[in-house]
């Protein structure tokens, strides 16, 4: 056997993007970060509003978290045009549901539906990483996370997007109490702590990630509905 042949063979490294010959790539990554933290009777959702394309900032205020008609919030990252289409798609299905049943969808139904919508485009996916948040049937905070093709999981907290590698470990430590002695990893945060952590996470992410910044859209979902506030992040 000629081992030299193997050593000289070109090494192909699997990357996230597979190019198909000369085909034009119909996807772009518009950057940005989203997170959600569930509490006992609330959820905090936060997304920065910067939209970028490579090193350019397209817009300082292009929201990527959306209040839906059933009182839940969908926070996205990834390819913004797909995210907008996905929201349109969900809202249209939610409207059909509303007309059929005379009742808004509950969050678990919408979560399941979203998984189906994403999977229905399995072979030409919506390049979006969605986080769906709301209150479940018992009034508990519910956060559902997905990958672009519809894998779904209910979690207590999640960070996605260009700064997810910075924010998720921070949440693992401060929200999930991971790898800590005498800490209960299933303990849920109180509302003020959750809000504070969400803001701190973005202040930090803005410092280190060039695609995150400008403004922070902050949603608090509870029994009374959705409270939305807009905070300033660094514009540099």
């Amino acid at each position: 056997m000629d081992f030299a042949q193997f050593q000289q063979a070109p090494v192909s490294v699997p990357t996230e993007h597979h190019s198909h010959g000369n085909r034009w790539d119909p996807y772009v990554d518009n950057g940005g970060t989203s997170l959600a933290i569930a509490g006992e009777d609330f959820v905090v959702v936060a997304s920065d509003t910067r939209q970028s394309n490579g090193y350019s900032i397209n817009s300082r205020y292009s929201p990527k978290a959306f209040e839906l008609s059933n009182g839940s919030v969908l926070a996205t990252t990834g390819y913004h045009a797909d995210a907008l289409k996905l929201v349109e798609h969900i809202e249209q299905r939610a409207q059909l549901y509303f007309h059929k049943h005379d009742r808004a969808m509950n969050v678990s139904a919408m979560a399941q539906m979203l998984s189906g919508i994403l999977y229905s485009k399995r072979f030409f996916p919506y390049y979006v990483f969605p986080i769906l948040s709301g209150l479940d049937a018992k009034g508990k905070g519910a956060v559902y996370t997905y990958d672009p093709v519809g894998n779904m999981e209910r979690v207590n907290y999640q960070a996605y997007g260009s700064a997810s590698a910075l924010v998720q470990p921070f949440l693992d430590s401060q929200v999930g109490f991971k790898n800590q002695r005498n800490a209960d990893p299933s303990r849920l945060l109180e509302r003020p702590q959750a809000v504070k952590l969400a803001i701190d996470a973005f202040t930090g992410a803005t410092e280190r990630d060039i695609h995150t910044g400008d403004w922070l859209d902050l949603f608090i979902i509870d029994q009374d509905g959705i409270h939305q506030t807009k905070r300033e992040l660094k514009h540099d």
């Binding site: 119909p26 518009n30 394309n53 817009s59 300082r60 292009s62 913004h80 907008l84």
Partner: peptide, 12 residues
């Protein structure tokens, strides 16, 4: 508003 060949859109 802006929109390009990717359908990416934003207002600024």
């Amino acid at each position: 508003g802006f929109v390009d060949l990717y359908g990416t859109r934003y207002q600024s």
